[in-house]
Amino acid sequence: MAATPPEQRIWWNEPIERVELIWIFIAFLWGLFMFGFMIAWHFIGQQNLSKEAYRIAPTAYEQKVENFAKQFQVREEQGIPVVKPKPGADVYLLARLWQWWPILELEKGQSYRIHLSSIDWQHGFSLQPTNINIQVHPGYEHVISLTPTESGAFGIVCNEFCGIGHHTMTGKIYVTDKKQAAADQRLAEQR
């Protein structure tokens, strides 16, 4: 029951007020603009992720990641290997209950091809504080190209509920600035 019922019982037959027509027209034009801009941004935004993905057995992907970690491990953090691949290399990251494995150490300004997959459930790869979000599925190897533009520590969060330990599923990517490290080293030597 309406607070003030329409004069006619069939309300949709009543004439539309001029102000309402103007707002409907503005909303329609705004919708067309946003639709068109989404298409345009796909081409001019330069933020689109790679559409490269392959089918792979989860056990085969796990073996790839373990071999990658053994080859490029530089240290360990809380029992998790920290790997530092060569610039331009293919980098492998594994999602499993409830961790991202291994920890990556990349160089600022260098490009990498990051391979992502899961060995058990669907997980979400959310690189914080940047806006990179990917659903990671077992049986599929997703490949994205990444060129870090800032140095620091970046967190990886699983943003797809994956069970009771979901809230603990995090990972890390360190980005080092080789030029800054060399400058810091020279400064330390001068002291």
Rank of each mutant, 00 (worst) to 15 (best):
F68V: 09
Q46L: 10
Y61N: 07
F37G: 00
A53S: 10
A27M: 08
K70S: 12
G45D: 00
L49R: 09
R96V: 01
H115A: 05
R9K: 09
E77R: 14
N159S: 13
G88L: 10
H123C: 10
H123P: 09
W121T: 10
V83K: 11
H137A: 04
Q71S: 02
F125W: 06
I56M: 15
E150R: 10
E141V: 01
P129G: 01
S111Q: 13
I134R: 05
P129N: 06
G88D: 12
Q110H: 10
M1A: 06
N131E: 00
K86C: 03
K179A: 12
F25T: 15
T170V: 10
R18L: 01
I164P: 12
E62Q: 15
Q122H: 11
S50P: 12
D90Q: 07
V74W: 12
E7N: 04
P15M: 08
I10L: 00
A40V: 04
W30Y: 15
H142C: 02
N131W: 07
G171L: 03
T59W: 13
I24S: 15
W41L: 01
K70F: 15
N48G: 12
W23M: 15
T176M: 04
E150S: 10
F125G: 00
G139D: 04
D120V: 01
I164V: 11
E62S: 15
L116W: 09
E7C: 05
H167W: 13
G79N: 04
H115G: 03
M169L: 05
K51R: 14
Q47Y: 01
I22S: 08
P148G: 08
L187F: 14
Q73D: 06
M34R: 14
Q110G: 03
A69E: 08
Q135A: 06
V82W: 13
V157C: 03
I132L: 04
G124P: 12
R9L: 02
Y92M: 07
N67C: 06
E76Y: 07
R9C: 05
W11G: 00
G88C: 11
V19T: 12
G109H: 12
G31C: 14
Q78N: 15
I132N: 00
W100F: 15
I44H: 00
W121M: 10
Y112N: 03
A183I: 11
F125C: 02
M34A: 14
M1I: 06
E52N: 04
N13D: 15
F161W: 05
I173P: 04
M38E: 14
I22F: 13
T149C: 01
W12T: 08
G163R: 03
V74C: 07
S111Y: 09
Y61A: 02
Q71R: 14
T168I: 04
I114Y: 03
P15D: 07
L21A: 03
I44A: 03
Q8A: 07
E189V: 11
Y112Q: 02
P81D: 09
Q185G: 01
K108T: 04
I164T: 05
L94S: 01
R96M: 00
